[in-house]
Amino acid sequence: MRLDPDGGPLLVDGPVEVVTEDGTTHFSHRPTVALCTCRRSARYPWCDTSHRARAPKGADAPGSPEEEPR
C-alpha cells in the first residue's frame, strides 16, 4: 500500500475486494487500484481524482510559482 502524501488516493496492489460501510462489495482485478480517501469521488470507493479540484490554489499550495525548489 502507498498513501499519496498530497492527500490523494491510497494505492493498493490488486486484485482487490472492498466492502463499503453499507455492506456493498466492490471488486477490481487491476494490478494496482487507487482507493478514494477524501470521499469526493463519484466512483467511490475508487478514486476519480476529485480531490484535485479541491486542492488549495493560493500561494501556499505546493507547486505554486512562489514556492522555492527543495
Rank of each mutant, 00 (worst) to 15 (best):
R30H: 00
T32H: 00
F27I: 04
A55H: 08
T49M: 01
E17I: 09
K57A: 12
G58C: 00
T25S: 14
C38W: 05
T20F: 01
L35F: 03
S50Q: 09
G8N: 05
D6S: 14
V18W: 04
R52T: 12
C36N: 09
R39W: 03
K57Y: 02
Y44N: 05
A61D: 10
E17F: 06
C36H: 10
Y44D: 01
S28Q: 08
R52P: 02
T24Q: 14
S28A: 12
C47Y: 10
P9E: 03
Y44G: 08
G23Q: 02
L11T: 13
R52I: 12
R30D: 13
A61Y: 05
Y44K: 10
R54P: 01
R30G: 04
G63Q: 07
A61S: 15
R40Y: 11
D6F: 15
A34W: 05
G58H: 04
L10R: 15
R40G: 10
P56L: 08
G14L: 03
T37F: 01
P15F: 01
S28L: 00
G23D: 11
A61K: 10
A34D: 01
V33G: 09
P45R: 00
G14N: 14
P45M: 07
P31T: 01
P45I: 04
R39D: 09
T49K: 03
E17A: 15
T32Y: 04
R54T: 15
A61I: 10
E17N: 12
H29M: 03
A59N: 06
H29E: 10
A61W: 11
S28I: 05
C47M: 00
A61E: 04
P56W: 03
A42N: 06
S41K: 09
A53G: 12
A42L: 06
C36E: 03
T24V: 13
T49I: 11
A55W: 08
H51S: 06
F27Q: 14
G14F: 04
